[in-house]
């Protein structure tokens, strides 16, 4: 009888969840901000963190790259946004959407929400079509609207102002709930309640739809996704080992057309399921998830 072929064990040198939590804590290390009801204003605030994390969160130590981009576009009439564009290019070309899957606090929140028991909506043709919406949001709310208002010399970070749930949760609620910020609470009006409602809707959707905000609305993911082909970090498929079984496409929770494309958030589920050990998630030479090819490693799962 032919010996049953064993799936190669998967090597994961570090837990993705651990890195997500670590990144979220590192980005938000200014814990005294919650005690004082104010934001960090030190020199680190000029540095963008790679993931989506609101500048106005009381605990945030760095700037949000998306907020920085919108403000830079808003000021582009008077000076070019070299610093912000350079920073985003650096993040995108080095890590790309690895940031989404490993170093974005909003991604972490969405994944934790998805763990809440309930019916789950599997990806389908409609979700694939909806995934194009984030590119439209990137174009309109991050670039065009701030750009138009830049000509009028009025700063308008339109995504931050009208859509971003991270801003509502971390910034608005994070500051408004502090007892000393009565003047901020007094300013709550139609715009605040619009954003609050939208945030609730988005996070509610995340219970039923894996990473709903990431897949359909996040312009930062859209931006990093555009640099996927050039990014050093990503998902690699060993074509010599691949047998085109399609298991990777079926297990993937987001709307990819091919493994590692611009929709992929590098979660590593494909690497875990691949029966041939053909898939590797790597950041440069560092393997984050992939087949364990060391001697004696075949057949058992190794953490």
């Amino acid at each position: 009888m032919e010996e049953k072929k064993k799936r190669p064990s998967v090597r994961k040198p570090i837990s993705r969840r651990f890195v997500q939590v670590y990144a979220a804590v590192l980005y938000n290390a200014h814990i005294r901000g919650f005690a004082e009801g104010t934001i960090y204003r030190g020199p680190l605030k000029t540095v963008c963190v790679p993931g989506l994390n609101c500048y106005s969160c009381p605990a945030a130590v760095g700037a949000c790259p998306l907020g920085a981009l919108q403000n830079a576009v808003g000021a582009s009439a008077s000076r070019p946004a070299f610093y912000v564009i350079g920073t985003l290019l650096l993040f995108g070309l080095l890590l790309g959407r690895l940031i989404c899957g490993w170093a974005c606090p909003v991604g972490l929140i969405q994944e934790l929400l998805y763990k809440i028991p309930g019916k789950k909506l599997k990806k389908n043709r409609a979700t694939r079509r909806l995934s194009y919406l984030k590119y439209g949001i990137l174009a309109v709310f991050v670039l065009i609207i701030p750009g138009i208002y830049a000509l009028r010399r009025v700063p308008l970070p339109a995504f931050c102002k009208y859509i971003c749930p991270a801003g509502t949760l971390e910034g608005a609620l994070g500051l408004m709930l502090h007892p000393k910020n009565g003047d901020l609470r007094a300013l709550a009006g139609g715009l605040f309640f619009w954003k609050l409602g939208l945030m609730v809707l988005i996070f509610a959707a995340c219970v039923f739809v894996f990473r709903a905000f990431c897949r359909f609305l996040c312009p930062l993911g859209a931006l990093y996704g555009l640099m996927t082909k050039l990014a050093l970090a990503g998902v690699r498929v060993d074509r010599d080992r691949c047998v085109d079984c399609g298991a990777c496409l079926r297990i993937c929770p987001v709307d990819i057309r091919s493994v590692g494309d611009r929709e992929c958030v590098r979660c590593g589920k494909c690497a875990e399921i691949c029966p041939c050990g053909a898939i590797t998630v790597r950041a440069g030479k560092l393997v984050l998830a992939g087949p364990d090819l060391s001697p004696g490693a075949e057949g058992g799962r190794r953490t």
């Binding site: 290390a29 200014h30 009801g37 680190l44 130590v61």
Partner: peptide, 25 residues
């Protein structure tokens, strides 16, 4: 190294008397 980075960052931004401190309310 990761732990040290986190500890140093947290200490720097929260404790007064160093260049990275953000100032208190």
């Amino acid at each position: 190294a990761a732990l040290v980075l986190l500890a140093v960052t947290a200490a720097a931004v929260n404790l007064p008397g160093n260049p990275l401190y953000g100032g208190s309310r």
